[in-house]
C-alpha cells in the first residue's frame, strides 16, 4: 500500500516535471503522502514550494526573509550625488558625448580596420545555394540598429540587429543566396543611414549618401 502511494507520487512528480502543472487535488495527495513517508519527504520535500506555486497556491518563495535596511535609499542617493556632476545625468551625457566626438573619428577609422561589420561566412561550401552572413557594427551610442538592404526590400524594420555585449556591438546573421550582388545600409536609431565601413565596395544610394555592396 505504502509502496503503491510512493509510486503514485513519483508518477505525479514526473508529470509535474514535464508540464509544470499540478491540480490542487494532486498537490494534496503529494503533500499528504510526504508528511508520512520519510523517503518521499526527503526526495520531494524541497520541491513542495514549487509544486504549490504551479498548483496556484502561495509558495512562500517570493517572500523576502529579511527586510532592506531603512537607510538604503538615502545611502544610494548619497552615492549618486557623489558620482554625478551638478546637472545630473544630462550633463554627464553631454560630457560623454564631448569625449565621444573625437573618439568617433578614431573609432570610425578603427572600425574600418578592426571591428568590421561584415564577418565570417558559415557553411561556405561548393554547391551550397545559401550562406549565412553575419553583419556587425560597433556603435555604442546607438539605441537600436537595423540592417536594411535589397534582400529585405529596403524594409527598415524587418532586420533588427542585436547588441550582443550590451556595449554597442550590434550583430545579425542572415541567409543569402550565393552568386548575387546585394546592396545594403545600417539604420541607426531609425533615422541615420550609414554604409558599412568594413565593406570594400560602395555605391551612390541616390539620396546623396552611399550604400555598401556585398558580392556573394
Amino acid at each position: 500500500m505504502e509502496q503503491g502511494m510512493c509510486n503514485r507520487v513519483a508518477e505525479l512528480m514526473r508529470e509535474w516535471e514535464r508540464t509544470g502543472q499540478l491540480s490542487p487535488e494532486e498537490l494534496a495527495l503529494v503533500g499528504g503522502h510526504v508528511r508520512q513517508c520519510r523517503r518521499c519527504a526527503s526526495a520531494h520535500g524541497a520541491l513542495l514550494p514549487l509544486l504549490r506555486f504551479d498548483a496556484g497556491r502561495p509558495s512562500g518563495l517570493s517572500a523576502v526573509p529579511s527586510p532592506l535596511s531603512g537607510s538604503f535609499t538615502e545611502r544610494l542617493m548619497g552615492r549618486l550625488a557623489a558620482k554625478t556632476p551638478a546637472g545630473g545625468i544630462a550633463l554627464a551625457r553631454r560630457r560623454a558625448r564631448a569625449v565621444r566626438l573625437p573618439l568617433a573619428v578614431a573609432a570610425s577609422v578603427a572600425l574600418l580596420i578592426a571591428a568590421g561589420f561584415l564577418a565570417w561566412f558559415w557553411g561556405l561550401r561548393p554547391g551550397r545555394q545559401e550562406v549565412l552572413v553575419r553583419f556587425e557594427l560597433v556603435a555604442p551610442e546607438a539605441r537600436n540598429v537595423n540592417l536594411v538592404g535589397d534582400f529585405s526590400d529596403w524594409d527598415p524594420h524587418r532586420l533588427a540587429m542585436k547588441d550582443v555585449s550590451g556595449e554597442g556591438d550590434w550583430q545579425i546573421a542572415i541567409r543569402l543566396k550565393r552568386g548575387r550582388v546585394y546592396t545594403y545600409n545600417f539604420l541607426l536609431n531609425g533615422r541615420r543611414w550609414i554604409a558599412d565601413p568594413s565593406s570594400l565596395r560602395h555605391v551612390d544610394d541616390g539620396f546623396g549618401g552611399t550604400s555598401s555592396v556585398l558580392d556573394l
Binding site: V34, R35, A41, S42, G45, L48, P49, G60, L61
Partner: peptide, 8 residues
C-alpha cells in the same frame, strides 16, 4: 524533514 527542506 519537511520543516527543514521546505524553507526558502
Amino acid at each position: 524533514i519537511l520543516e527543514r527542506v521546505q524553507s526558502r
